[in-house]
Design a protein around this nucleic acid. Structure first.
Length: 869
RNA sequence: GGGCGGAUGGCGGAACUGGCAGACGCGCUGGACUCAAAAUCCAGUGAUGGCAACAUCGUGAGGGUUCGACCCCCUCUCCGCCCACCA
C-alpha cells in the first residue's frame, strides 16, 4: 500500500476478498438485523446515479450493524415482470426472458462496482418459476379464503397498453405508464378483496416507525368515512311505490335540506330497463342481471337518460373528473324519491358527478351545504334549502359600505330565526357559496336547535328504528383489480371447467409455467396473448377430468413485490415460501429504504398480503416493515428528472471510473438530507475525493505513540474529546439516517488530525472504523496497512466514552441585551457566580453598563452570560 | 379543493431542547511551490462602512411572546411533492 491513493486498484481487490471470505455472512451471530432496499426493475437503460443512493444507505447501515455485533441480512433481487420488457419484446421479437437476463447482468455489474455487502446467494427474481410458484401459491390461499374472486364490473382500461388497471395505477386520471386517458370497460377479471383488510391496514399504521407523510398518505388512500346509508323510497307515477334506493352520506344532519337525489350513471336502478343497452354491448353478467330482474323502473324519458349514460361511457376518466367542469345530468322523469325523514317528494337525477363505485353509487343532494350539489342545483335551477345555522361564524356583511365583521349570526339577527335563514341564504347564494361546516340545525322539525354532531346520532337512530337507515363505515380504498391482459406476468393458477366452473390448480401442480408464445402483442379483446396457445390453454379439469381451459390473464406487476422480502430469508426452500424458524429469526424488516412514490401501492399491497399470510399462519408478524425510510430522488444538475429523453443521465460507472466507488458513496451520503430531493453535482464528488486523499495521506502521520487518553495519567486533550464526540455523532447520525452530518463530522475530525504533528495509532484506527461504512474499500486498505490481518468489518464499532465528551474548559459567550459582545474561556466546573463575575468584569461590557448595576443577569452554565441593562 | 413538506451566503447545506447563524463541502479571491500550468499546501470569503480594532444590518414578508427567536405563536407570500367530484 505504498504510493498514491488508487481506488481503481484497491476497490476490486477488496470486493473480491470480501466475497471470497464471506465477510458479510456472519449469520450465526445472536443479534439479528434485516435491512432491505426496494428491489429494482431491471430496465434496459441500466442504473443512473440516483438508484444507488438508497442502496448506499442500507449498505452503510448493514456495515455499521455488523461492526456493532449484529448478524445482518442485506439482500438484493429483481422485480422483473412488467410492461417495458414486454414492449421491448414486441419491438425486437426477442423473448422478455432474454432481455431481462441481459438487463439483470448489467445491473448486477453496476452494483458490484459500488462494493455492496449483498449476499448474492440469496438473489431472487420474480420471473423465476421457483419464485412465482409461491406468488401463485399465495393467490390460491386467497382464493380458498374467498379473498380472490371473479368480477364482471366495469374496470379501468388503458386503450394504449390494452390492459385493465387497478385504481392505484392511475395518475391524474390517466394511465401512469403511458399517460393515455383511460376508459371504463366492463370485463371479466380477478379481484382481490383488499377492503376486507381496510380497517387493519389503517389501525396498523399507528405502531409503525414510518415517515408521518407516508402514513398519512395511506390513511387518505384507505379513506375511512363514518356515515349513514339512508333509504329513499321511489314513487313511480304509473305503478306506485318501488323498493327505493340507498344513499350514503357523512352529513345525515343535513337530511332536511335534501332537495333532490342523484344516482351515478352506473347505478343498478338504470340497468333495469329492458330497452336500454344493446345485447352485444352487454357483458355476460349484465345479461344475467337484466334477465332476472323484470322490474319496470317507470322512467319516462328513458331515451334521453340512455343517451346521457352512453355519453358518459364515452368520456374518458380524465374528461369526467376534469377540474372546474360544469356539472351535467338528466332528470329521471316519472319517478320521485321520498325523503324518509319528512316524507318530502324530491326529483331524481342521473349525473356523472356521482361515482358509481363509492358509497352506494347514489347521494342525497343538499345544495345548501355541499359544494358539488350547490353547483349542480344552480345549473339546473333546483331549490337550495339551508338547514344548518352557523353557531360561530365570521362573515363580512355583503351589502356595500359596511366593513363590519360579525362573529355570529346572532350579532346580526339576535332573535328572528326566519330572518337569519333569509339572510344566510341570500348572502351565501350571492357569494355563490354553500355552508359546508357544522352548526345548529334550523328548519329541521323536531331536530331544530341541535348541533350537527348530536343531530347525526339522533337522526341516524330514528332512521334505524324505522328500518330506513343505518350507521355505516365506507372506504375510498377499492378492491384490487388483479388481472392483466398481458403476456409478461405470473399466470393466474386457475382453470375453467365446463362442468365444475372455476377450479384452482392443485398446489402440487405449481408453478403454472408461463409458456412461450409466438406473439407478445396484446390482443385487445380482453384476452391475454396466452389465449392463442391452444396446447397450453386446453387442459383436463383437476376435479372431474373433463375438458377445461386455463385462465389466460396474468397478475399485475405488483404481485411479485408484495412478498419478496420474505423469500430472501429462505430463498431455496422448496416446501414453503419461507421456513418458519428462519422467518421468526429475521422478521420484521428493521430498516426498509425506498422511494416515497410507493406510498399507496407497493406499501399497501405488501402490508395487505403480509397480514393475510399472518392470518393463515405463514408468518409470525402482523406487519412486514417496522421502520421505513424514504430516499429522496436525485435530480439531474438541470433540476429535471434524469432521463434518456433529456440527455441528462449520469452513469455511476463513469463516476466510479473517475473518482472511485468510495468517493461516490461518500458524496451521495453527504450531498444533503437523505430523504430530500436534490440535484446531482459532479463537482461535489471532487470534494469527497479530496477528503479521501487526505485520509490516505494521514497514514504518514500515524504513529505508534499511544494517545494520551490511554496513558491515563494526564487530562484528556482536545483531540481525545473530539474523537469521542465524533464517535457519538456518527453513531447517532447513522442510526437516524442523517448521513450528511455524519460525513461532515468525519471531515472535521480529519481536518483536525491534519493540523496535528502526529496522529496516535489508536485514534487513526478508530477513525478508520467510523469511516468504513461509508468508504469501505479505502478503510479496509488502510486498516490492512496498519498490520491488521482480519477485515476491518470483523472488528468492532467504537463506543463513545462519556467522560471524554466533556472538555475541561468551555467557551462562555457574554451578551449584553442578547447581543454578543465578548467571550472567555473558563474551567468547565466554574460556578454560576464565577461566570457572572467574569462577565461583568469584561471591558467590552462596561461601556454598556455605564457604571450602573445591570437590571438582570442570566447565566446559562457552560454556554453564556446575558447582561440585561 | 385536501394532505404533507419547504424557503438560511454565489451554490449544496449545518445549527442539540429557545442560547456565538452560516459547521462541512463546492465555488471564488490572494499567496506559496513551478520556467509555466495542473495537482497540492497556506490565508481569506454573508452584506454595508472602516487602514484597523470595530460597528450596523442579516435566516421569504409583517407582527407577537422572550433577557435572548432560523427555532415558539398569529397573519401573509412563494415553492415542491402526494391525493383529488370519495357525498
Amino acid at each position: 500500500m505504498e504510493g498514491r491513493y488508487n481506488p481503481g486498484q484497491i476497490e476490486k481487490k477488496w470486493q473480491d476478498t470480501w466475497e471470497k471470505q464471506g465477510v458479510f455472512r456472519q449469520y450465526g451471530r445472536e443479534k439479528k438485523f434485516y435491512t432491505l432496499d426496494m428491489f429494482p426493475y431491471p430496465s434496459g437503460a441500466g442504473l443512473h446515479v440516483g438508484h444507488p443512493k438508497g442502496y448506499i444507505a442500507t449498505d452503510v447501515l448493514a456495515r455499521t450493524k455488523q461492526l456493532q455485533g449484529y448478524a445482518v441480512l442485506h439482500p438484493m433481487g429483481w422485480d422483473a415482470f412488467g410492461l417495458p420488457a414486454e414492449q421491448y419484446a414486441i419491438k425486437t421479437k426477442t423473448h422478455p426472458r432474454e432481455a431481462t437476463k441481459k438487463n439483470v447482468a448489467t445491473f448486477k455489474n453496476q452494483l458490484g462496482r459500488l462494493g455492496f455487502t449483498y449476499d448474492w446467494d440469496r438473489e431472487i427474481n420474480t420471473t423465476d418459476p421457483e419464485y412465482y410458484k409461491w406468488t401463485q401459491w399465495i393467490f390460491l390461499q386467497m382464493f380458498w379464503k374467498g379473498l380472490a374472486y371473479e368480477s364482471y364490473e366495469p374496470i379501468i382500461w388503458c386503450p394504449s397498453c390494452q390492459t385493465g388497471l387497478a385504481n392505484e395505477d392511475l395518475e391524474n386520471g390517466a394511465c401512469e405508464r403511458c399517460g393515455t386517458a383511460v376508459e371504463k370497460k366492463p370485463m371479466r377479471q380477478w379481484v382481490l378483496r383488499i377492503t376486507d383488510y381496510a380497517d387493519r391496514l389503517l389501525s396498523g399504521l399507528d405502531a409503525l416507525d414510518w415517515p408521518e407523510s407516508i402514513k398519512e398518505s395511506q390513511r387518505n388512500w384507505i379513506g375511512r368515512s363514518e356515515g349513514a346509508t339512508v333509504r329513499f323510497r321511489i314513487k313511480n307515477e304509473e305503478s306506485g311505490m318501488e323498493e327505493g334506493i340507498e344513499v350514503f352520506t357523512t352529513r345525515v344532519d343535513t337530511l332536511f335540506g335534501c332537495t333532490y337525489v342523484v344516482v351515478a350513471p352506473e347505478h343498478p336502478l338504470l340497468k333495469n330497463q329492458e330497452s336500454g343497452i344493446k345485447n352485444e354491448e352487454r357483458t355476460e353478467f349484465e345479461n344475467q342481471e337484466s334477465g332476472s330482474r323484470k322490474q319496470e323502473s317507470g322512467i319516462k324519458n328513458w331515451e334521453e337518460v340512455r343517451a346521457y349514460i352512453e355519453e358518459t361511457k364515452k368520456k374518458t376518466e380524465m374528461e369526467r373528473t376534469a377540474e372546474g367542469r360544469e356539472k351535467t345530468g338528466v332528470r329521471l322523469e316519472g319517478i320521485t324519491a321520498i325523503n324518509p325523514i319528512n316524507g318530502e317528494e324530491v326529483p331524481v337525477f342521473v349525473a356523472d358527478y356521482v361515482l358509481g363505485d363509492y358509497g352506494t353509487g347514489a347521494v342525497m343532494a343538499v345544495p345548501a351545504h355541499d359544494e358539488r350539489d350547490f353547483a349542480f342545483a344552480r345549473q339546473y335551477g333546483l331549490p337550495i334549502k339551508y338547514v344548518i345555522h352557523p353557531t360561530s361564524f365570521s362573515y363580512k356583511k355583503f351589502e356595500a359600505g359596511s366593513q363590519a365583521i360579525f362573529q355570529t349570526i346572532e350579532d346580526i339577527f339576535p332573535e328572528k330565526d326566519s330572518e337569519t335563514e333569509g339572510w344566510l341564504s341570500e348572502t351565501l347564494m350571492a357569494e355563490g357559496k354553500p355552508y359546508t361546516s357544522e352548526g345548529k340545525l334550523i328548519n329541521s322539525n323536531a331536530f331544530t336547535g341541535i348541533h350537527s354532531t348530536d343531530a347525526r346520532e339522533k337522526i341516524t337512530e330514528k332512521l334505524e328504528t324505522e328500518g330506513l337507515g343505518k350507521k355505516v363505515v365506507k372506504y375510498k380504498l377499492r378492491e384490487w383489480v388483479f388481472s392483466r391482459q398481458r403476456y409478461w406476468g405470473e399466470p393466474i393458477p386457475v382453470v375453467r371447467c365446463e362442468q365444475c366452473g372455476v377450479v384452482p390448480v392443485p398446489e402440487s401442480e405449481l408453478p403454472v409455467l408461463l409458456p412461450d408464445v409466438e406473439s407478445y402483442e396484446p390482443t385487445g379483446t380482453g384476452e391475454s396473448p396466452l389465449a392463442a396457445i391452444d396446447e397450453w390453454v386446453n387442459v383436463v379439469c383437476p376435479v372431474c377430468g373433463g375438458p377445461a381451459k386455463r385462465e389466460t390473464n396474468t397478475m399485475p406487476q405488483w404481485a411479485g413485490s408484495s412478498w419478496y422480502y420474505l423469500r430472501y430469508i429462505d430463498p431455496k426452500n422448496t416446501e414453503a415460501l419461507v421456513g418458519k424458524e428462519q422467518e421468526k429469526k429475521w422478521m420484521p424488516v428493521g430498516a426498509y429504504v425506498g422511494g416515497a412514490e410507493h406510498a399507496t401501492r407497493h406499501l399497501i399491497y405488501a402490508r395487505f398480503w403480509h397480514k393475510f399470510l399472518f392470518d393463515i399462519g405463514a408468518v409470525s408478524t402482523d406487519e412486514p416493515f417496522r421502520k421505513l425510510v424514504n430516499v429522496g430522488l436525485i435530480l439531474a444538475s438541470d433540476g429535471r428528472k434524469m432521463s434518456k429523453r433529456w440527455g441528462n443521465v449520469v452513469n455511476p460507472d463513469d463516476v466510479v471510473g473517475e473518482f472511485g466507488a468510495d468517493a461516490m458513496r461518500l458524496y451521495e451520503m453527504f450531498m444533503g438530507p437523505f430523504s430530500q430531493m436534490i440535484s446531482w453535482n459532479t463537482d461535489g464528488v471532487v470534494g469527497t475525493r479530496r477528503f479521501l486523499e487526505k485520509v490516505w495521506k494521514l497514514r504518514e502521520k500515524q504513529s505508534a505513540v499511544s494517545s494520551e487518553q490511554s496513558t491515563g495519567s494526564e487530562k484528556p486533550r482536545g483531540i481525545d474529546s473530539l474523537l469521542h464526540k465524533t464517535i457519538a455523532k456518527v453513531t447517532e447520525d447513522i442510526n437516524a439516517f442523517r448521513f450528511n452530518t455524519a460525513v461532515s463530522s468525519l471531515m472535521e475530525l480529519v481536518n483536525t488530525f491534519g493540523k496535528e504533528e502526529v496522529v496516535a495509532r489508536a485514534h487513526y484506527e478508530t477513525f478508520l472504523v467510523l469511516l468504513s461504512p461509508f468508504a469501505p474499500h479505502i478503510a479496509e486498505e488502510l486498516w490492512e496497512g496498519l498490520g491488521n490481518t482480519e477485515s476491518i468489518f470483523l472488528s468492532s464499532w467504537p463506543v463513545a466514552d462519556p467522560k471524554l465528551l466533556v472538555t475541561d474548559t468551555v467557551t462562555i459567550v457574554v451578551q449584553v441585551n442578547g447581543k454578543v459582545r465578548d467571550s472567555f474561556e473558563i474551567s468547565a466546573d466554574a460556578t454560576e457566580d464565577d461566570l457572572k463575575a467574569k462577565a461583568l468584569a469584561s471591558e467590552k461590557v462596561k461601556p454598556y453598563l455605564d457604571g450602573k448595576e445591570p437590571k438582570r443577569v442570566i447565566v446559562v452554565p457552560g454556554k453564556l452570560v446575558n447582561v440585561v441593562t
